[in-house]
Structures are given as structure tokens and as C-alpha cells.
Simulated scan of single mutants.
Amino acid sequence: MYNGSVVSLVLTLHSLELSGPSIYSAFIFGLLAYLIILLCNLTIAFTICSNRSLHKPMYILLLNMPINDTMGATSLFPQLLYSIWCENRLISYSACVLQGFFVHLYGGASHVILTAMAYDRYIAICSPLRYGAIMTNNNLLRIITGMWFLHFIMIFVTFLLLLPHKICRTYMDDLICYNPSIMKLVCENTRVNNIYGLIVLGVYHILSFSVVAFTYIQILITCISKKQSDAKMKAIQTCGTHLVVFLFLEFNTFFPLIAHRSENVPAYLRRVFSISVLVFPPIVNPLIYGFKTKEIRKKILKMPSYKQPLNDFM
């Protein structure tokens, strides 16, 4: 059992198994990935904020995504790049808890934001005449404030329940810190933490999946029931990409958390999925929800520094 103060406790993360020239290659690749994530997401956020024509419910909800993706990537890359460059896998316990908090804050917020966007599209397509009355500025503010406040409280309580426990081990068999990996360092009974964790899992995964499934089934039914020839294509364009992104997020966030509860899952798979959810969505989301969105792309193309690169990309 560790007898000192947790403030001075230093943990050891799992080795990246890099050596020689691969260290510099990994550092450059990670740095470029992080810079691309920052550039793309901050461009989308700035474009929405700086154009009054985009101050609509759909885009205001979308604004939460690049902000959240930037937070998620920042919870991973700075510490990871420092670890690669210095060949040092040590991290203080307080920094580990802080990283874990932001990792969970990012993951949960991704579910909440995609769920809110699904609800917005459901109202817009299934009840277009009532859309203006339902998605008013006041209601939109309540939705955004409520989802972030409740989400923050749930994650805050998750880590608040973790802090009183004593630590027995200092080696963490994961590449990053998050709640299940930190709980494995605890030497006391964590039954309350496990029960609360399962409740949180149920809220984020079961509830959000149910809402998204219901809304997009209704959207498909509404689009297909219309007599226009492009109804099916409209349904696919509206639902397809969003569902793929949501299901990818569901699996990537659910798998590592469940893998910690099973001895039959290879540790390397758990590590890969825990990292991928902080890398791929922040890179892919700006392309899907930003640069591929006609209204946002038009505004970005008017920015001189982005006009030529985006024309080449498109």
C-alpha cells in the first residue's frame, strides 16, 4: 500500500515500446495529427461563431462538437507527445485523475451532442411546421446548458467517488488514464464505484442509443413515406453518416470500459480502442459535419487562407 500523499504519488503508464528512429517518427506523426485536429476543429468553431447566418439551432448544436473534439484531443496529445519525446512514461496521480476526467468528459459529451443533433434533425424533418416553435433560442439554450450541466455532474461524481480510496499500485496497464484503469490501482472495496459506473454506462449508451435509434427510424419512415423520388436518398443522406459516426463512437467508448471487467479480452485491444476514440473522431468529425456541410463550406471558402486548399480538397 502506498503510504504517502496522493499529491506526490507518481504512476507509471504502459510502455509505448518505441526505440531509436521510431521515437522521432512517432513524435512527428503525433504532433502533425494534433495540429490537424486543432486547425480543422477551430476553423469550424470560428466559422460558426463569426457568421450570423449560421446562428441557427442546427449549427449551434454542431458548434459543441469541434469544441468537444478539441478538448478530447488535448486531453491525450500533449501528455503523449511529452512522453514520447522524453521517453518517460511517468505521470503524477493528480495529473492522471485530471486526464481521466477530461477523457470521460469528452466521451460522454460526444454521446450527448450526437443525441441532441439527432433530436434536432427529427424535429426538422418529421415536424417541419413546428420546428421554429420548438427549437427557439430559449429552448436551445436550455438543451445545451442542461446537457452539459448534467453530463459534467455525472462525470464529476464518478471521479469524486474515486478520490477517497487508497492506492496500492503505481503501474497502470494502459496508455492513458481513465476511470477503470485508475480503479485497478485501488486496494479497497470499489463496489459503490462499480455500481455507479454501470448506471452511468447505462445512461450514456442505452439511453442515447435508444433516442438516436427512435429518432432516425422516424426520420426514415417520414422520408420514405413521401412521394418524392428523392425521398430514400434524402433519408440515407440524413441518417446514414450520422448513424455510422454514432455507432463507431458507441463501440469505441463501450469496448474499453467493458474490457476492463473481463480477463478474456487482450490488453492490447483495450489500449488501441481507448486511444482511437481520442484520435479518429476529432479528425473525421470536422470533415463530415463541417467541410462537407454546404453552408459551412461556403463560409470557409470565403476565407482567403483556406480558399485554395479547400478547392483542391473538394
Rank of each mutant, 00 (worst) to 15 (best):
Y2R: 08
N3P: 01
G4K: 10
V6Q: 13
V6R: 13
V6I: 11
L9W: 08
S15Q: 08
S15L: 02
P21Q: 06
F27Q: 06
F29W: 09
L31M: 11
L31V: 12
L32Q: 04
L32G: 03
I36F: 12
I36H: 03
L38R: 03
L39T: 12
F46G: 02
F46W: 14
I48D: 03
C49Q: 11
S50C: 10
S50A: 13
N51M: 02
S53T: 14
L54F: 03
K56Y: 04
P57H: 07
I60A: 04
M65K: 05
P66A: 09
I67M: 14
T74A: 14
S75A: 15
S75R: 05
S83N: 04
I84P: 01
C86F: 09
L90F: 11
Y93E: 00
L98W: 10
Q99C: 08
F102V: 04
V103C: 10
S110D: 06
H111L: 09
I113T: 04
M117N: 02
Y119N: 04
I123D: 01
S127K: 15
P128T: 00
P128Q: 01
R130K: 15
A133G: 00
L140S: 00
R142W: 11
I143C: 10
I143G: 01
M147K: 11
F149P: 03
H151Q: 15
I155T: 09
T158E: 12
L161D: 04
R169V: 00
R169D: 09
D173W: 03
D174L: 08
I176P: 06
I176S: 01
C177Q: 00
Y178G: 00
P180Y: 03
I182G: 03
M183I: 09
M183D: 09
L185D: 03
C187T: 04
R191M: 06
I199F: 12
Y204N: 06
I206Q: 00
S208D: 04
S210P: 00
V212T: 10
Q218Y: 07
L220S: 12
T222A: 14
K226Q: 12
D230E: 05
K234Q: 11
I236V: 15
C239N: 10
T241E: 07
V244N: 05
F246Q: 04
F248H: 08
F251K: 05
F254C: 13
P256I: 05
A259S: 15
R261K: 14
S262I: 07
S262P: 02
A267C: 07
R270Q: 15
R270E: 15
R271S: 10
R271I: 11
F273G: 02
I275W: 08
I275R: 08
L278T: 06
L278E: 08
P282C: 10
V284H: 04
L287M: 12
L287A: 10
I288R: 04
Y289E: 02
K292H: 10
K292G: 00
K299F: 03
K299E: 13
K299P: 00
L301D: 04
K307A: 10
K307T: 11
P309L: 02
P309F: 00
L310V: 09
N311W: 02
D312G: 02
D312R: 14
